[in-house]
């Protein structure tokens, strides 16, 4: 059974909200590429990644996020994350990803700080 995964992209001015649901694995590469192309076309300068407590990320999924953050940095876009479980916040910290993106405690905080 293939892992269930969904990605929704919402552009709100300079903000792109990418909402993940399910299991982020290497098979999400096309969906993430399309989402990035969409936000780049819209000239979004801030990217917020929304996860949910029950979402799961494997190492290939994390690698996709690294590629996204890497590209965003080259193009001067800021990346933030909210909704991650404590476990995956710890994993992000463990691999050093928190040096390259901001983890927010919730959507309200994320929206407030990226628009500040």
């Amino acid at each position: 059974m293939e892992p269930v995964f969904d990605l929704q992209t919402h552009i709100e001015g300079a903000l792109a909200l990418l909402t993940f649901q399910g299991e982020l694995t290497g098979s999400a590469e096309d969906a993430l590429t399309q989402a990035y192309q969409k936000l780049a076309l819209a000239r979004a300068t801030n990217i917020l990644l929304q996860f949910h407590e029950k979402d799961y990320l494997n190492s290939a999924g994390i690698a996709l996020l690294i590629a996204l953050v890497s590209q965003a940095r080259k193009e001067k876009r800021q990346v933030g994350v909210f909704g991650l479980s404590n476990h995956f916040q710890k994993i992000f910290d463990m691999i050093g990803l928190t040096d390259y993106l901001t983890i927010y405690q919730g959507e309200a905080e994320a929206r407030r700080l990226v628009s500040a």
């Binding site: 190492s59 290939a60 690698a63 690294i66 590629a67 890497s70 463990m94 691999i95």
Partner: peptide, 8 residues
């Protein structure tokens, strides 16, 4: 960007 499995 890949190559985190063993590390984890």
């Amino acid at each position: 960007p890949r190559g985190w499995g063993l590390y984890l």
